[in-house]
Design a protein around this nucleic acid. Structure first.
Lengths: 170, 170
DNA sequence: CCTATAAATTTTAGGCTTAAAGTATTTTTT
DNA sequence: AAAAAATACTTTAAGCCTAAAATTTATAGG
């Protein structure tokens, strides 16, 4: 039998005897490693077959969905990365001739970024291969399992967001 | 009606008419963003409350589990990062006085890395807070949902590993 | 013993990333 | 209109990360 120690009063019980959170920790570790394994495979393929990187691919994917172009600020928000990061990423894509950067019509602070014709052609080829890679990576999961994962990950993300606002110490 | 084009022989059918893989793509995107959201929150808390980074925390976690120390090569494998990366991380932790680096007994090529007394004390405090953060982040998921996620992520990881070895073009 | 190969680590060059400070422009307030 | 605040972006300093080349030490074969 388990020794539960001396009796505790009601107020201190929870903090004195927190149930352990090893399961959540294990889940977080597994989420982390699963993502790492998949991501490093995708990065490797992008590099080997298209001589590009995941951040550049992601940026181009956003632009492909916005034919009229996006500002650096919009890209920063969509890709969830800092402004300064986008500056450098766009710089390198401009050098490669895959995107264009031009002044926004009404605001001289802003710049509109668009795919060049070559950028669009290149992206479409990469996206097609990428879709196949991902399908291959998840090939062993049934449609029902995919759906369950989608739902639970959404729930996890929502839970995480909630804990950021109401969390122990922000 | 859809024009399915000329008849295809059995061998080429699958590759000529792949069903679309948008679901897998969406799942990958969700896995990615879920991990990003959680990870950036954890990084922020590690920085704000302990003035450290996730890679350093992860490295110290490995050392905490190996009281007799680990070589740089072992750390590299466990953390799934390159050798050169570990060199720099250990350098910075040595400067901070959190880890020690000493020659391995039987092989002058190797070095054994261990937590210092302060490193161990510091890590234990961080690990305890970290466990609480993660529990908080996943608070809205039931035990059954945690278990399902664990299982499906393991399956996804296994599927990914398989596709790396047998994949379209390695 | 000597040479070739392997293993452990470091170095190098380059890219990604952030937070914080700085610049230019626009909008709001007074 | 002038001053103040906000917005869009760039720069800076520092850390993380990789692949590939280089260095040092160990091991194996002759």
């Amino acid at each position: 039998m388990e020794d539960i120690g001396p009796p505790l009063d009601a107020e201190t019980k929870v903090t004195e005897r927190p149930h352990d959170h090893k399961d959540e920790l294990r889940l977080w570790l597994r989420l982390f490693t699963t993502k790492t394994v998949i991501e490093s495979e995708i990065r490797r393929r992008l590099r080997d077959r298209f001589d590009t990187t995941l951040p550049r691919f992601d940026l181009m994917a956003q632009l492909d969905k916005s034919p009229s172009g996006m500002t650096l600020g919009e890209l920063s928000q969509r890709l969830m990365v800092s402004n300064g990061n986008i500056t450098g990423l766009v710089d390198r894509l401009v050098v490669q001739g895959l995107v264009d950067r031009r002044a926004a019509p009404n605001d001289r602070r802003s710049q509109l970024v668009t795919l060049t014709a070559e950028g669009r052609r290149t992206f479409r080829a990469m996206a097609s291969a990428h879709e196949d890679w991902v399908a291959d990576i998840f090939a062993d999961l049934s449609a029902a399992e995919l759906e369950t994962l989608m739902r639970l990950l959404a729930k996890a993300k929502a839970s995480a967001h909630k804990s950021m606002n109401t969390g122990t110490d922000k």
